[in-house]
Amino acid sequence: MKTLVWATATLFAVTSSALAQDTRTVTDDLGNVVEIPVTPQRIVVSRSDCLATPLIELGAPLIGAGSMQDDRFNNGKPFIRGATALYGTQFDADLVDIGFINQPDPEIIAALEPDLILIAAWAADNYDQLSAIAPTYAAACFDPPLKEWLATLADLVGMTAEHDRLMASYTFKLANTRAVFADRIGDPADVSVVFADPFDEGIYVADDYGTFTVVADDLGLSRITATDLGMLTDNGNLSFELVEELDADFIFSSHQSFFGQPPSHQMEVWRSNVPGFDDLLHAPRNNQLVIVDRSLVRAFAVDGLNTMLAVLTSQIAERDFVPLAE
């Protein structure tokens, strides 16, 4: 009898400790002090790009995410910006659509009974509502450098080990790629690259252009930035009249598959806004203008870094190109 009582008591103690979640206190990017589970089991996020996509890559227990919808992508069904393009991820019974990324439906979130909610700091006007459901962390996820944010997010959801494993694979591939660049080019700093997207208002150039910036800098390429071009902020539209300032060995530009815009559309945008650009600039004149999917450039995932690494390697180091004359 005594043994039975001890066994029951022990079982109860073990079960109770498993059910009660360990928590820790963190301060979010709006200054809110939040007590969050050390290893959350039911995560809901408002943003699909900088929050849902990296969590899906990590294999975190994500049960709800904000969506976008456009007739020209994913057969018109709601999609997760980033993850749907990268992994083909769809909403289903295990990953519920909670509404538009900037205006999620709080009742759907409440029904999911999450233990952690992550939202964007610049779209946190519903913070009080969401905090009534579960601990809510507002993240300025676009502000820190990409690699720093991925590490921060992994730490928030208690998956640092998985993040480190993913980053180790990228670091390994980066080391191999550097060897390829050394073999074919010598000093990568001799190669100049710029990421530029023409719009009606001018040619958009930024200091930080997602995975392109990270990988180009990791490889040691010479990157032309908005700051280099004398812009007042870290991004902006360069006047079409100053297009020659973009002259570089390679120009990278992006098309948006989720807006139904194939690469040919982006080439047409270049032609219509900068007539004769393919004679004017070295890169397009020598077939060194590269159009990549913006979902890849803006991917908040280690997988995005790996893919961008492959793109830059194949386009720059694994083929012959015509260097820009000094």
Partner: peptide, 10 residues
């Protein structure tokens, strides 16, 4: 919202 997003929606 655009120039000082860290200021907070509240």
């Amino acid at each position: 919202t655009i120039l000082a997003p860290g200021m907070g929606s509240y």
